[in-house]
Amino acid sequence: MRAAFPREARLLAPPQFRAVFADGEKFVSRGFVLIAARSPSGRSRLGLALAKRRIRRSVDRNRVKRVTRESFRQHQNLSCPVDIVVLARSHTSHMTNAELFDQLAVIWSKIAASKTLRQP
């Protein structure tokens, strides 16, 4: 089985990111800030905005991106289609992959349980 992250599952254009920032609900953990908004596309999509100021080394940024994409891929069948923008906090680069997966799993469940995102 191929584990894919297709183009349709990504936020790509600046207007898509702006729409999430404008209408989104914020979910915070020790390592991440996720902003989620209902998706007009009918499927869940992910956008990554990992600032160099927060995670200095590119290898660390890329590792966090890989973990985030994989976690999203495993949990993308949320209760309703949402667009999600992921922002990393400063100490995210010092966390292990297991810690990142655990924090993201908690946030995915919070997003799935959110009443404001499920309402039409």
Rank of each mutant, 00 (worst) to 15 (best):
A37D: 10
D102L: 07
E70P: 02
N77Q: 15
P15W: 02
G47V: 03
M95K: 15
R69A: 09
S114G: 08
S90I: 08
T96A: 12
G24Q: 09
R30E: 13
S79D: 10
W108Y: 07
H75M: 04
D83N: 03
R30A: 12
D83R: 01
L104I: 09
R63F: 02
A13W: 08
I84V: 14
S39T: 10
A3N: 08
R63D: 02
R61V: 00
P15F: 03
K52F: 00
S93G: 15
Q119Y: 07
K110P: 03
F101G: 00
R7E: 07
E99F: 06
F32V: 06
R89L: 14
A98E: 09
Q74W: 10
F72T: 14
C80K: 06
G31D: 12
T96F: 02
V106N: 07
I84D: 08
F72C: 12
R57T: 04
G24I: 03
N77D: 15
S90K: 11
Q16A: 11
A51G: 14
T68N: 01
R61P: 00
R2W: 05
L48S: 03
R7G: 00
V33C: 14
A13G: 04
V85M: 05
E25L: 14
P14R: 13
I84S: 09
V33H: 08
R10A: 06
V85D: 03
V82R: 09
S93C: 14
R30T: 14
V28I: 07
R89A: 10
A13I: 03
H91D: 15
A51Y: 00
K115N: 14
R73N: 13
S39G: 10
V33F: 05
K65W: 01
G24T: 06
R43I: 13
Q76I: 04
R66M: 09
G24H: 11
R45H: 10
K26N: 14
D83G: 02
T116Y: 01
Q103T: 02
R18D: 15
K52R: 12
I107H: 05
T96Y: 05
F27C: 08
H94P: 00
A22S: 15
R43S: 14
P81H: 05
T96D: 08
E8P: 02
F17Q: 12
R10G: 02
Q119T: 14
T68D: 00
V86N: 12
M95Q: 15
H91T: 09
F17I: 10
I35Y: 09
R73D: 13
V82D: 12
